[in-house]
């Protein structure tokens, strides 16, 4: 599995690079690969989920067809099974939702009728375990579901994150204290997406701190750059909660 973790690492690094520099390089889709490498790349795309399309989502660029094709292939190849974890189901849902949003208006399939297989995006997976989770576990779970934390997020997960933003803020504090940079970055990304950080949290300096301390891990850098992007482009300055 070391190869897969390496492929995920490389793919996340590519996404980070595009987010950081804002350039027009392609993510993942450039260059044809075959055999094991192709299989590995699809698996890495599945692992990273909708975040493969994050530059398109955040930078508001038209989607690149080769990247979309990769995401579709990942969805086809790795559909969530009947025993899939909630995180897997949600991750799949986010991919579907993102592809639909980028290729159609109002969630209608595109001209080619290329609607992803699986549950329709309107039918959202269950969030009751998130709603009842203590704030520590909530933050852990949300970090895993970080790909759902995008501007104007309207999923049921985002609704929980919005409603429990103080809990997520406490989770951010806990994660930084524990030097769990991935969880801190994920919590910070959610707080940026739902504009839920109290002013005294110091989210902006916190994101800088997390990126500096844990950014060698591209998954940390990805969440952090996404969060900083949302904070920087938020017309409300990211201050949606009282201090």
């Amino acid at each position: 599995m070391k190869q897969l973790s390496g492929a995920i690492h490389d793919l996340a690094s590519e996404v980070v690079s595009v987010l950081r520099d804002g350039d027009h390089r392609s993510v993942a889709g450039a260059g044809a690969v075959r055999g094991d490498e192709a299989v590995l790349r699809v698996a890495a795309v599945r692992a990273l989920g909708a975040d493969v399309l994050l530059p398109t989502t955040l930078l508001r660029r038209p989607p690149e067809e080769p990247v979309l094709a990769l995401v579709r292939e990942a969805m086809r190849t790795y559909p969530p099974g009947p025993d899939a974890s909630s995180a897997t189901v949600w991750s799949h849902w986010a991919m579907e939702r993102t592809v639909l949003r980028l290729t159609s208006t109002d969630g209608v399939p595109d001209r080619g009728g290329r609607r992803p297989t699986g549950a329709p995006p309107t039918a959202q997976p269950d969030v009751s375990d998130l709603e009842s989770a203590p704030w520590q576990r909530l933050t852990h779970q949300l970090a895993v579901l970080g790909a759902l934390a995008v501007p104007e997020a309207d999923s049921a997960v985002a609704e929980v994150a919005r409603r429990r933003s103080l809990d997520v803020s406490r989770g951010f504090v806990r994660a930084v204290r524990r030097r769990d940079w991935f969880q801190a970055a994920g919590a910070g990304r959610w707080l940026a997406a739902v504009r839920g950080a109290p002013g005294t949290l110091g989210l902006d300096t916190g994101l800088d701190f997390v990126l500096h301390m844990g950014g060698a891990d591209p998954r940390v850098a990805l969440h952090t750059h996404a969060a900083r992007w949302m904070r920087a482009t938020d017309p409300g300055g990211g201050e949606g909660a009282p201090s």
Binding site: W135, S169, R170, V173, R174, R177, P198, T200
Partner: peptide, 14 residues
């Protein structure tokens, strides 16, 4: 008091 009410749970947990 408001600041403490927000963040004390994170510290006690730790």
């Amino acid at each position: 008091a408001e600041y403490l009410a927000r963040w004390l749970p994170a510290w006690t947990d730790d």
